[in-house]
Every structure is written in C-alpha cells, then in structure tokens.
Design a protein around this nucleic acid. Structure first.
Length: 478
DNA sequence: GGCGGAACGT
DNA sequence: ACGTTCCGCC
C-alpha cells in the first residue's frame, strides 16, 4: 500500500502486557495500559479500523491534546478546540490526507442516531458522549449485576437484561480477543434455544481473566477497589469506568502481592473512561463532590487544575448522571434539565474529577509530537446501540424512577462517604488488601446477591473475596 | 457552524 | 457497518 500512515503510527513498540516493573513508562505516561490485542496492527486478521468515537476518546485521554480537544462542560461533553488539528489527526489515523473537520463532523453526526454522541447546541465544536451507552456496552461483563447502575438499567428495561448487555453486545466488545478471530464466541452458547441460561460468558476468552499468564487473577471490579482518594470512590464498588482499580493513574506501581495482583488488561476504552469522575458527585453537596475544582477549570480552557496542590490533569468529562440513571445521556436528570434550560451548563455544579494521567511531565504539543510514537488501542467495541426507550423523551415512570433511584443512590453514596470519613480508607499509597473495605460489599445489604458468574473466576480468589466481604460486612455493621 | 441526504469506498 | 466525500440547506 502506498499508505503507511497507520501501522507505523499506531502500533507502538511496547510490550503487550503490562506487568509491574514492565512498560511502566509507556503505560504511565498516558496513564493507561492496554491489552495486547489492543496493539494488534490494524491489518492483522480480525482487526478493524479504529472508530471515530474511540479515536476521539483517545485524543481526549491524551494530555498533549488538551489544547486540541478536551473535556469541557457537562458530563461527557467535550470541545474540539482545534477542529483542523483533530481532523488532521483523524486523517492521519485513517490515511485520509484530505480529511477535514467538515468530513469528520459528518461522521460525528452519524453518531447522533446511534446515541453515541450528540451535539451540545449553542456551543461550537462541542459534542457530548453518551457514556451510559458507551460504558454499558463496553463494561457489562464484570460486575454489572452488582451495580446500582446495572440495576437501574435493568429497571428501565422492565427488569429484563439490559439490551446492551446481551452476549452479542459483549462479544462485540472484544472482537479481537484471541479466539474471536477464529470465530470462537466469548460465549458458550447452548445449542438449545438462546436465552438467559443459554449464554455463558467464556471467561477464558478474556486475557485479563485468564489464569495462564501472569495476570490479575480477577477483574478489578471483583477486587476491592483500589483505594481512591475521596471523593472519587465509587460507592457501589463497581466503577463502570473501571478507574482506580487498575488505572495506572492511581496506582502507578502495583506492588507485588498487593490487593491488585500483577496484571490486568484494561480495555483501551476503559482506559479512556478511567478518567471519569465520581458518578455521584453531583448528588453530593458541593463540598463532597470533588472540591469544586471542575467549575473553575472546566470552562477556562479547562485543561488543568489542582488537587492537593499537585497539578492534576483534568481531561475528564464531568459527572455522569446518565450512568446513574442508567439511561441515555439525554435521559438523565442533569441533561434533561440541561435541555430544558437550553443546554446552558453552569460550571461547577457537582462536577468533579478523577485524577488522570500520571506524570504531568514534558507536555508536548501535538505538533511537537507529530511523527512521534503513537499508540492505538484500536478497540473495536461496537456501539450499535439498541435503546428501546427513546432517549429524547422521558416518560413519567422513568422520571419518577430517576428521582427515586437518584435519591436512593445518593443516600447510598453518602453512607459510604460517611463511613469513609470515619474509617479513613487507606489512600492509594496505603497498604491495600484486607484493610480496604469493598464499597460494593458495603452495599451488599441493599444490593441483590452477586451473581455466581464473577465469583467463579477463581475459587481461591472467590473464597478470599468472600472472606473479605464478610469482614467488610462486620465492619459496616459494627 | 451545523445538519442530514446521497453516492460511494472499504 | 462505518465512515468519506460532496453538497444544498438553514
């Protein structure tokens, strides 16, 4: 081919697996680590070209592109500050030298119908991700059943399995996992009629769940959450963005034998999403919702802020109310209100940030960076979204549910936060493991019992987790 | 700038 | 399917 603009740009010469003591630089400079399959050349069998929304997330995640594209405004909202540059980068990625913002934006507009994106009206070059969809579609497998988010989603779907959590959807998230290229499903689908029991997740198909290679023995959602600095704890223990647990932003070095064993492969998208903030932040009083950093930083070019005096990269979308509501972005309370007030977005209302992008050193402009090493997670997460409900119109039942659910969840999070304040969960740097109650577990009394699926990952781990769970419950109830 | 139809490519 | 390219319209 006369176009070599993909492989040499996208496939960084980095080890496929992140392990403690390995590839730290690569991982930490971007605050992420990618699974090996994420580095497959796009020309490799079974691979497909990166999708635009993923590329956008990728840019949003990169510190050096903050002047080009950045989270700004409402939750999931981002601004293309330099449309030409974004288009140029996209053209680079896709070997389309004549790409421009007009064309790119046409592609973005195609996402409207898919509910992946929508336009923030009245704000130039501003779009908004529908993270409830993105996240749900991309992270349904691990611990969703235990999360209020999942419950909410279920609720909205009449108690049936969330449509986006179908085996097909999950399969689509990992189209290039080792077996997928050979047509092996992630699911052992029963030969009988498909159904709730007919589809079993093939855990062994997930490299990060496998037991062969040195690897995290269980997904982070099953581990106790890696201790996060308040207010970034996820009360239900399942962070749909899967941040701190293995986000290298928060745990730059996973000590051997730590709560988080050696390696876990984050989904590249998840890595992007790992920078999302506390989902409940807007439900909490401002003082509890992240220090109010967002309001100041978010609208002022919004690339940086401070936390604890340390420079923190704020490349995060604001509060995911949509997640909480288990609805599309449009369906969440904040966005609904936002729409009603013409999408005006008062900054600083309950918006907070997670910490992201570790080093903060040596920022490069995209221009400086051109020709440099690029990476491409190139996840092929399909986002063909089947949203049974019309996101543009909330019926009263859903609205009512939203309110009830929100208050319920808010109180839950408050409980956890209160508990945290008193019990002083160890910070990120603290010795982990048994001392850290699992926020999800702490919610067990009000949550349905966990499905057996995740716990079956590893008997020993399951036992250990069970033990911890018991311990946690003791703590909570004492 | 933003939208979406249409034809087209891969 | 997912854009890319072009374009008329607002």
């Amino acid at each position: 081919m006369d176009c070599n603009c993909v492989s040499d740009l996208l496939i960084p010469p980095v080890p496929a697996l992140w392990t403690p003591g390995q590839s730290h630089h690569q991982a930490l400079t971007r605050g992420i680590a990618f699974p090996d399959w994420a580095y497959k050349p796009e020309s490799s069998p079974g691979s497909r070209q990166i999708q635009l929304w993923h590329f956008i997330l990728e840019l949003l995640q990169k510190e050096e592109y903050n002047a080009v594209i950045a989270w700004q405004g409402d939750y999931g909202e981002f601004v293309i500050k330099d449309p030409d540059e974004v288009a140029r980068q996209w053209g680079l990625r896709k070997c389309k030298p004549h790409m421009n913002y007009d064309k790119l934006s046409r592609a973005l507009r195609y996402y409207y119908n898919k509910r992946i994106l929508h336009k923030t009206k009245g704000k130039r070059f501003t779009y908004k991700f529908n993270f409830s969809k993105v996240v749900l579609v991309n992270y349904p497998i691990l611990d969703m059943a235990n999360s209020p988010f999942f419950l909410a989603q279920n609720h909205f779907n009449g108690g049936s399995t969330a449509p986006d959590c179908t085996p097909e959807a999950i399969q689509s998230l990992f189209p290039r996992l080792p077996d997928s290229g050979r047509g092996t499903s992630l699911f052992d689908r029963g030969t009988a009629a498909p159904g709730p029991d007919g589809d079993k997740l093939r855990l062994d198909a997930f490299p990060f769940l496998s037991t062969g290679a040195p690897c995290y023995t269980k997904p982070p959602s099953l581990l106790g959450p890696y201790p996060r600095n308040p207010p970034f704890d996820y009360p239900w223990g399942f962070n749909p963005y899967l941040p701190g647990a293995f986000s290298l932003n928060n745990c730059p070095k996973l000590p051997p034998g730590s709560l988080y064993p050696s390696q876990f492969y984050p989904n590249p998208l998840q890595s992007s999403l790992s920078q999302l903030p506390h989902p409940f932040s807007s439900l909490l009083p401002p003082g509890e919702a992240g220090g109010g950093e967002r309001g100041a930083a978010g609208q002022t070019g919004g690339t940086n802020g401070t936390a604890g005096g340390q420079p923190v990269r704020l490349c995060l979308p604001p509060y995911p109310g949509s997640l909480l509501m288990g609805r599309t972005d449009i369906g969440n309370g904040a966005s609904l209100a936002e729409r009603e007030r013409g999408e005006a977005n008062p900054p600083g209302t309950g918006l907070s940030f997670g910490l992201a992008a570790g080093t903060g050193t040596g920022r490069q402009s995209p221009t400086e960076r051109r020709g440099g090493v690029k990476q491409d997670p190139e996840s092929d997460s399909d986002l063909e979204i089947t949203d049974l409900s019309d996101s543009s119109s909330d019926n009263e039942n859903e609205h009512d549910f939203n309110i009830r659910k929100a208050s319920s969840l808010a109180s839950r999070s408050q409980i956890v936060l209160d508990g945290k304040k008193r019990s002083a969960l160890p910070p990120v740097s603290s010795p982990p493991a048994t001392a850290a109650p699992h926020p999800l577990k702490s919610l067990m009394p009000v949550s349905p019992p966990p499905l057996s699926l995740p716990l079956s990952l590893s008997p020993s781990v399951a036992l250990h987790e069970k033990h911890r769970e018991t311990e946690t419950l003791k703590m909570i109830h004492s």
